[in-house]
Design a protein around this nucleic acid. Structure first.
Lengths: 411, 411
DNA sequence: TTTGTTTATTCGCCAGACGAACTAAATCTA
DNA sequence: TAGATTTAGTTCGTCTGGCGAATAAACAAA
């Protein structure tokens, strides 16, 4: 006797009953996701692939066309049988906006419903010099500019998400962001107010979490169900997707990989302890070790560029420091790997330009420390650039739509 | 404008459309779970608490009574208004069976649908002395005895799950179980055959995963959404529940905490590396360090009892070894805690009787190594005893029912 | 007894998925 | 060129099952 071991993911343990609108929402989302992944496609394709009845698919597609989420393009040609009307995702009437604040820059990204990037702005910003209030005002202003651009282009904004390098509660309050000097900042309230209490949801989220979501949707390892993203900023944090879902932890504090003890040199860390990953491979620490002549650094971007130059030219101090940081990263990733068994660990932020020198040492250390050296996680540099968290912020909004929360008809 | 941030958990990204039977299954499960948590309760209670219509609840309850999953008991008395008919979970017609093989014993547990334990058998068994085939035969025989007992008592068996200390594929093949000496053993096939190709599902699963599920259903921290269980057997493995879901990893290899480097003494481990947690706190290593006079140990249970005696009497060697093992555990848990941020880490297996001596050192080390010392995970000893994995195996079957896969009417 | 309160069932309504039959529009074949 | 074949999409009737309102039932309090 066969057993269908597929698990109903329908409901968690909350007492959430279902009714017919849930069926409809679920099926609309099924069609939408299929179209996103397989466009252009016909109604018949969708019916065949999803198992939905042809009549049902027609009804669902009509609904999505009404909402301007799908669009009919041409017909198929030169095929036997009646030609199929091709459907494509019509992303253009909608926009999702992601913002990011970090210690040294701010980013805004907007994408349409189809995931096409509509804008990508970056401005440098020294977070530690500003009060939380000033920073909130600045990020809100950036968000407002992005929103008004979208509105001007005739798009309906579906939502706006802000990424912050720190601990964020579900209610949008930033509990603690050491590299910004924030504590208990109600960023969501500030941004919502600055945007004039908009009718779309405004969310605040940890930057590593957003980055890993971006990576899973737009990175080189799209669709990987077990994925980790390491932020390579001043601090090092991990965003973790396991079983296709973001790990949030009990208090919103997972992914604190930056203060694992992995540094054989046992350097002093800003957190008060010794030997932390951040003290060995955090970008400030790395620059200090690789370019001891550099002195106090304020703007990191040119320093990293200089470090790349030195590494290219074979500067021994730089190469040694990079190797050692790579080893520390490999050690950290091996711990992650043994506990969580991800397919891929993506290095982001400033680690990306430095990856050619970090990865070999990291991979070596990773292999040496894995329980199953044949089955270690793949280490790779992100291809998304610095906007990863902002892109991820926008992506969460699309995820929400894809999960069945469709935007209402625009009248 | 308010936003409903509740996330539809209805569907994952697979193209699984929904129809009316899903609505029915979802709502039956909602009622069942409510009754499990709040029995005795009336139809009106259920309607009020779940938001389902009273008429719908009546229909759902009738269905569950038909299936003999609910039962009407008396009426409420001495209350204003019409008295309510009380409903209770009627677990007795159904049984779920969990088995466990370990290096030194085998366990069988059966529970009814209401979670009442129906039997709990334990027999010692030296796994390494037997061939995988002999072991599979032995565990299957134990399972068969449990099943026939249940059938004799007039219960319908809902499923049988076997826990194994090792890597198990989704198809029930044990890829690797070092402490049993197994590699690529198709345990599910063996057990299924021995049971005569039954019409209920037979599943094989990692023991730590089952134990953490048991802990989340029946332990002292029931309902905790972020929970870790550490097996304290010959090996040390972690079962991880995060966000209410079991972490499975990419290759089924998560929770490999036993080989993290946490031992300051850097002892040689059986895995070939040095300084592993298992080499510092695994029960065999711990006994060797705490009772250097003990020599080669075959049966662990009396040795652990002896160790408890010595610790009670203040034996310095024993206490020092326990403190050191506790520190190693605390270090390992701190790593887990920083990466996953669980509410609770439960120590199981042989750690339970030793907990009074392990926990103080472990907690101390944990606090010292946590990023947020005020918010560390709670460390506690399991209250479930050695049958945790077997109980968890039975619990997975109830979970499956609770998730909406109701048993069919017995005709 | 009457009134009020709470419980549970009955009944009609309606959303929406499904299957079958049907129409539509192409290519293939004789 | 006229079917025949093939594939696409719609129409229509059926059926499942949740919902709201009305109703019956059963008790306490006045």
């Amino acid at each position: 006797m066969r057993h269908d071991v597929r698990v109903i993911t329908t409901m968690q343990h909350g007492p959430r009953p279902a009714d017919f609108t849930d069926v409809r929402a679920t099926n609309l989302a099924v069609v939408l996701r299929y179209a996103r992944a397989n466009a252009p496609c016909s109604r018949a394709d969708i019916a065949a692939a999803t198992g939905l009845n042809k009549a049902t698919v027609s009804s669902l597609v009509a609904d999505l066309i009404d909402r301007r989420m799908l669009r009919e393009t041409g017909l198929t040609e030169h095929r036997i049988g009646r030609p199929a009307t091709q459907l494509v995702l019509d992303g253009s009437p909608y926009a999702a906006i992601g913002l990011e604040v970090n210690a040294d820059y701010m980013t805004a990204v907007a994408i349409d419903l189809a995931g096409v990037q509509l804008l990508s702005w970056r401005r440098s910003f020294t977070g530690l010099d500003a009060t939380p209030n000033q920073a909130a005002t600045a990020i809100a202003a950036l968000g407002r500019r992005a929103v008004s651009r979208m509105v001007k282009e005739g798009r309906k904004v579906l939502g706006l998400t802000v990424g912050v390098p720190g601990l964020v509660c579900a209610d949008g309050i930033v509990r603690f962001a050491p590299n910004l000097g924030w504590r208990d900042v109600d960023l969501r309230a500030s941004v919502t107010r600055a945007l004039g209490e908009p009718d779309y949801p405004v969310t605040v989220e940890n930057d590593a979490n957003l980055a890993v979501l971006a990576e899973s949707r737009y990175g080189s390892f799209t669709g990987t169900a077990n994925l980790v993203y390491l932020t390579g900023e001043v601090g090092i944090g991990a965003g973790i997707i396991s079983g296709g879902r973001l790990i949030r932890g009990a208090r919103g504090f997972p992914g604190e990989i930056g203060h694992l003890a992995v540094d054989p040199r046992d350097r002093q860390c800003g957190c008060g302890r010794r030997g932390c990953l951040e003290a060995a491979a955090g970008i400030s620490a790395l620059i200090a070790a690789a370019m001891p002549d550099a002195g106090q650094v304020s703007d990191l971007e040119p320093e990293v560029a200089e470090l790349v130059r030195r590494a290219r030219s074979g500067d021994k101090t730089a190469l040694d420091a990079l190797t050692e940081a790579g080893r520390a990263i490999g050690h950290g990733v091996s711990i992650l790997g043994n506990l969580l068994d991800p397919e891929v660990v993506v290095l982001g932020g400033y680690f990306v330009p430095l990856a050619p020198w970090l990865l070999p040492a990291a991979n070596e250390e990773l292999a040496a420390r894995s329980v199953e050296p044949d089955h270690t996680a793949t280490l790779a540099a992100s291809t998304l650039g610095h906007g990863a968290a902002a892109t991820g912020g926008a992506a969460t909004i699309l995820d929400h739509v894809d999960a069945g929360y469709l935007p209402h008809l625009s009248r």
